[in-house]
Design a binder for these strands. Sequence first.
DNA 1: CTTTATTGATGTACCTTGTGCATCAATCGT
DNA 2: ACGATTGATGCACAAGGTACATCAATAAAG
Lengths: 309, 309
Amino acid sequence: MDEHPGLDLAHSFLIAAEELSFRRTAERLGIDQSALSRRIAKLERQLGFQLFERTTRQVVLTPAGRSFYEAGAPLLAGYDRAVATARRVAQGKTGLLRVAYMAFAAIELMPRVVKRFRAANPAVELALRYLPTQEQKIALSEGEIDLGFMIGPFEHSDFDSRQLASDPLHVFMPRGHPLSTRRTVAPRDLAGEDLLLGDMAEWEAYRRHLGEKFARAGVPVTPRQEASSTMALLGLVAAGFGITVYPRQLTGLIGTTIVSRPIADPAFHIETVLVRRRIDRAASVRRFIDCALDTVRAAPAEGKKRDAH
Amino acid sequence: MDEHPGLDLAHSFLIAAEELSFRRTAERLGIDQSALSRRIAKLERQLGFQLFERTTRQVVLTPAGRSFYEAGAPLLAGYDRAVATARRVAQGKTGLLRVAYMAFAAIELMPRVVKRFRAANPAVELALRYLPTQEQKIALSEGEIDLGFMIGPFEHSDFDSRQLASDPLHVFMPRGHPLSTRRTVAPRDLAGEDLLLGDMAEWEAYRRHLGEKFARAGVPVTPRQEASSTMALLGLVAAGFGITVYPRQLTGLIGTTIVSRPIADPAFHIETVLVRRRIDRAASVRRFIDCALDTVRAAPAEGKKRDAH
DNA sequence: CTTTATTGATGTACCTTGTGCATCAATCGT
DNA sequence: ACGATTGATGCACAAGGTACATCAATAAAG
């Protein structure tokens, strides 16, 4: 790619090619006829070929000029469209918003926010993508995504993090499990239980959080088996391999083979935050965040608490 | 269409959007970093929205900037292609050549020239169009065609006319016609014959020429019937309605129901000329003319004379 | 934690560039 | 033959963009 010879003069040429009169063209452009005459001459010099055959009485396009006009007119029209589109994007009225979410948010929170946002901003295309919390942070910093629903808290000078929910953790166990006779479960009741969790590759953030909470509660737990997905986890629980700890929302999705009980400890909550790059001031990103905050403010999911711990 | 805000700065922006570094971009553009900084700032001011989010340590595209880049990059690449294409057209290496031809040229001359030109200039698209001589003159002056095979001579200050051929006229008559016993026919032999010609709307030029020639030969003739096309004319001749006068080339195309005899008078030739607008200096037009001259010079059709009258 | 180097932004002086005005030669219409 | 209109050109001026020097911010190195 060279440097686009005469690009700045192309507009003058296109008008002239339509008018076929230097005076009328100059008038349309709001400049002197002599200025236009020089513009065209300069453009022809830069391009290296004649655009017009001109006498003092008539101006006609050369074949090369006709070719240049026919190819150039749609290009400049396309430029205007590109500007208009980009302007709409700047105003957040359209564009592409790349949103990532982790497993917990996928159950209820993310779909609700997305549904509301789509209704309010139909012109904004949403690219949803499942990513674990840790990978979201990388993806955010590398500009691969614009927003991420992730496990909080997340404090970093480069990122802006807004808490959307703080969900109580439940114990999920097979029907008939000894603990299922209780209405609530204390952390220390879980000592000695076989704890099943997602594998480290994808569930790193959650496992760190959970490990810390059990440590603070003075309950030593080590997961006995790992699953790669939420469904696999539930399958293992249903099959009697052990129990798991998961945010409350999952309760609504399970059948009768698995029962859940709240963990009666205010520390056993998990925060969901919505994170963006602080440098990214895109209007559509702001709109999405506002929409998310409105969503949880307007109708917080049952059992959710507004503030953590 | 406004006036394409910031079009001249778009190139700098595209490079910057690729480099994501003002210093490297400035280096690539061969300007000072400060100049680039102002260019981008000016472009953003003209467009009315931010293209980059920048700190002193990193430069990232805003969503609007990304949109503008994605739409703009192919546009400027398209501009370069448009310039390259137009340049090839200017050099006559490609482009569209609109050539018109009248009925006589369609028989043999035009196909031979076109075949030769196509072989030598495969990249030039030819738009062939049948037009009577008179209409070709209008079409040429209005720029609807670039070249015309027409009945000559044609002298005009706006046009450049080159004679390609001077073809002897023959008399075409039904088999068994009294004149068919002769080897040649004199103009005065045609006095009293029923002369069939094409109608005035399309055959004006030829009829003027022919009328003039008969007048000079002192033979009064008035066409008895008109036909709208060459085939219709031949049909009428074959049906015994009369005779017609036509250039020699037609001889090769007729069957045995019609016979032809040369008119033994040097005035009874018809010139075919190739005409272009004098102001049109397009290389491809010149090439076509050269090719046409080469064609008739290399292998003049049998019976053709180099000079008229 | 201090130092160093690199980033993009900005003040300044200079000079290239494009502009309007006036005028010219060519040409069409009357 | 004349006036009117076309595009081209000489000229002086003003605007605009440029390089240079420097600044504040920040990441990397010690």
